[in-house]
Design a protein around this nucleic acid. Sequence first.
DNA 1: TTGGATGCAAAAGTTTTGCACGGTT
DNA 2: AACCGTGCAAAACTTTTGCATCCAA
Lengths: 142, 142
Amino acid sequence: MSDTELLLRKKGLRTTKQRKAILDIIKSRKLPATAEDVFLELKVKDISANISTVYRTLDTMFENRIINKFYIVGDDRAFYELTSVKHRHFLVCIGCKAIIPITGCPLSGYEKTLEAKTNYRIAGHRLNIYGYCPKCALNDKK
Amino acid sequence: MSDTELLLRKKGLRTTKQRKAILDIIKSRKLPATAEDVFLELKVKDISANISTVYRTLDTMFENRIINKFYIVGDDRAFYELTSVKHRHFLVCIGCKAIIPITGCPLSGYEKTLEAKTNYRIAGHRLNIYGYCPKCALNDKK
DNA sequence: TTGGATGCAAAAGTTTTGCACGGTT
DNA sequence: AACCGTGCAAAACTTTTGCATCCAA
């Protein structure tokens, strides 16, 4: 049984062709993907899956904490990535919208402080950093 | 001339009834508002403004850096707030979706480090922290 | 007066839903 | 066999756009 199938079973989810394919795509991506990205890659791979199935599957996986879901400023669509990828953040270019991962999280330790201060049970955080990449910085003097 | 009008003029924007009302609403809110929030409050105040005008106005203000625009996990709509509010972050309850502002930013200093490391010109960041508020933590043992 | 802003209606884009059918367990 | 997942089509929801009209400068 494949790695991907195990991951689904562990959560009590049925292992269908579509789910395996969608999860494999998410796993293979170096960067977060949109529902459309997944849908198009399925087509390229000649695996039939309806767009509503893609959304439902991504939603199910999000609820089962297999993947994260988030938004990036400048783009109104949801992005998805494996929750098991090493914790990281993204640096987003305001100009060309390119996103690059940043290694090292500046928030280690902070969550505990906050937990004590607020009495919330902290589950995680989402941080994106915005700026201009070297190329766009040249075109956009501000 | 009102404060709100000055803010618009400073950016070279025309001061219309709708723009003043929309900006006043954003200013009066303690927490970020959605386009719909603004639209409904306009109605309550009996100020006629079309939903497309609300979006266009918010967009114009976003481009002129009068307001910020961002998303919160669990809600697919855009939120807006004044850029001039003191820099802050939000703690979002995964259960009841309540959001509370957090004082103190754990990222001061980090951006300069990153600028040196990446050669990007950093403009800012967006951080949200997720967890369960005391009430929801009781109902959702995980 | 004139160019930018608004209202209206229609469309675009993303995401969700009802229902019948099909596939996993 | 029972139940969950999928396809399809339609709808819901958020956001954008074209165009005529209106209004601030």
